[in-house]
């Protein structure tokens, strides 16, 4: 099938700003699903609120557009009742780390078979560029006009600590690697988190000397490095990308099914 078979063409051109990375992530999601050959009717995309969450309007799967930060809670309920479905949960950094932070760590702790795709653009884009939990120290935002003094979350370490069994980071520049990582994350049985560094040229870039999408993608190209590379030893400020963990652990729906069997047999 072609990319156009997976989208709702009537909503195109989409509403994202010129150069917004979220469209690249959407394209990569489509291509990963196409490569895996999963039926459209077996996929559910559950999103919350924000620029990133608009994705579920554009994708032609079963889609749920839910409450801010609560996408993982809705997805957990759906997965438990219909474990045979493949669930993708695209989220923004505000959605995932601020209002939805608790849902994220508990979904990770339970190891429920969902794929959380966190499009981290370091800002609240939809509401006008307020600083988010992933806005870096010293970065400018509309709510931090003199520079942000809050240290940012390290999303990878956050979900590793919470117990996610698949954790990866990639960027919109490294799009072929993003497609490969998404394929692995979707097929992984357990909670998968893929953090995608995704540019917001309008609100993050413009305020932080990366005025265009091209500047921001060049930043991802030059300031990230594969996990364990020698460049990282020379320059500790580089951001590592790749798969940090991929482990088989007891999955929540399977454990729940076992529990029901056990209760019924008594």
């Amino acid at each position: 099938m072609a990319v156009k078979d997976y989208i709702r063409e009537r909503f195109f051109p989409h509403l994202w700003c010129p150069g917004c990375g979220h469209g690249i992530v959407m394209g990569a999601m489509i291509r990963a699903i196409e490569k895996l050959g999963i039926q459209k009717s077996d996929i559910v995309v559950v999103s919350g609120i924000g620029c990133s969450s608009r994705i579920c309007g554009y994708l032609d799967f079963h889609t749920l557009h839910t409450l801010h930060g609560r996408a993982l809670a809705f997805a957990t309920g759906l997965k438990l009742s219909r474990p045979e479905l493949t669930l993708l949960v695209p989220m923004g950094d505000g959605d995932a780390f601020a209002i939805g932070g608790n849902h994220l760590i508990h979904a990770a702790r339970r190891n429920i078979d969902l794929t959380a795709i966190i499009m981290n653009n370091n800002i609240y884009g939809m509401t006008g560029g307020q600083s988010s939990p992933s806005t870096g120290y010293g970065d400018l935002a509309t709510t931090a006009p003199y520079g942000n003094i809050d240290p940012s979350f390290d999303p990878v370490n956050l979900v590793l600590g919470a117990g996610a069994s698949f954790v990866a980071r990639t960027t919109t520049y490294h799009v072929t690697s993003m497609i490969n990582i998404l394929e692995k994350a979707i097929t992984h049985k357990g909670f998968s988190v893929v953090e995608v560094l995704s540019q917001c040229p309008t609100y993050y870039g413009r305020k932080n000397r990366l005025a265009t999408a091209v500047d921001m993608m060049n930043f991802y190209k030059n300031r990230t490095t594969p996990i364990g590379s020698k460049d990282k030893e020379k320059n500790p400020d580089l951001i590592e990308r790749g798969i940090f963990i991929q482990e088989e652990r007891p999955e929540y729906c399977a454990e729940y099914a076992k529990l029901i069997e056990k209760a019924r047999s008594q």
Binding site: A2, V3, K4, F12, W16, G23, I24, M26, G27, V175
Partner: peptide
């Protein structure tokens, strides 16, 4: 095909 993969508007095929 890199233009197709990187186009945020899905405008290239």
């Amino acid at each position: 095909g890199m233009c197709e993969l990187r186009c945020p508007d899905l405008a290239i095929e």
